[in-house]
């Protein structure tokens, strides 16, 4: 079902500034543009993926002030004055984040389409510090679907990084 957008279609464009991966982006947007579409279509940061546009698959997960959020379920105009991190901002100066490297090493993807969301979600999960066991990690990563069936590799990758952190 397509929601009734009449109100938003008749609205004026808003001038907003999004802080994405440490850079300010000035945009003129109608209020009905989701953060996901703003990132992909207006800033050309297509690393954040659209798998359902309904908050059901997790492919669009980004970090907002370090917390994982579904960018398809929030409007861009609501996300000023917060720090948005997308998959493009995870590798610091060309060095892969340990999770990114672990995803490669553990073959935690096949087609790669859910991968940015899985990685952002896993970083958010590590920040939350709630999941202690493999079962808890599996549970708290379950909002991120993978249709290729790379689940084992994904959880292996998250567990490897989690363990390396706890050993530090």
């Amino acid at each position: 079902m397509i929601p009734n957008f009449r109100f938003m279609a008749n609205s004026e464009k808003h001038s907003i500034t999004l802080q994405v991966n440490g850079h300010p982006y000035q945009l003129e947007l109608l209020p009905w543009v989701s953060l996901l579409d703003a990132l992909r279509e207006n800033i050309s940061l297509t690393g954040t993926k659209k798998g359902c546009d309904h908050g059901q698959c997790g492919a669009c997960t980004v970090l907002i002030d370090g917390k994982r959020k579904l960018s398809c379920l929030t409007l861009a105009v609501m996300q000023e004055d917060v720090a948005i991190t997308t998959i493009e901002g995870i590798a610091a100066e060309g060095n892969l984040h340990p999770l990114q490297q672990a995803f490669i090493d553990k073959d935690a993807f096949q087609c790669g389409y859910c991968t940015p969301g899985q990685i952002c979600s896993a970083i958010g999960l590590l920040n939350e510090n709630k999941a202690n066991t493999r079962e808890e990690v599996q549970d708290l990563m379950s909002g991120n679907l993978c249709r290729c069936g790379a689940n084992k590799g994904i959880i292996n990758a998250v567990m490897a990084v989690k363990q390396s952190i706890s050993h530090e």
């Binding site: 297509t46 690393g47 997308t86 998959i87 990114q100 993807f109 790669g112 940015p116």
Partner: peptide, 10 residues
């Protein structure tokens, strides 16, 4: 996978 870098960096 040789394309791994591209898939994990978006």
């Amino acid at each position: 996978r040789l394309e791994g870098y591209h898939k994990v960096t978006g």
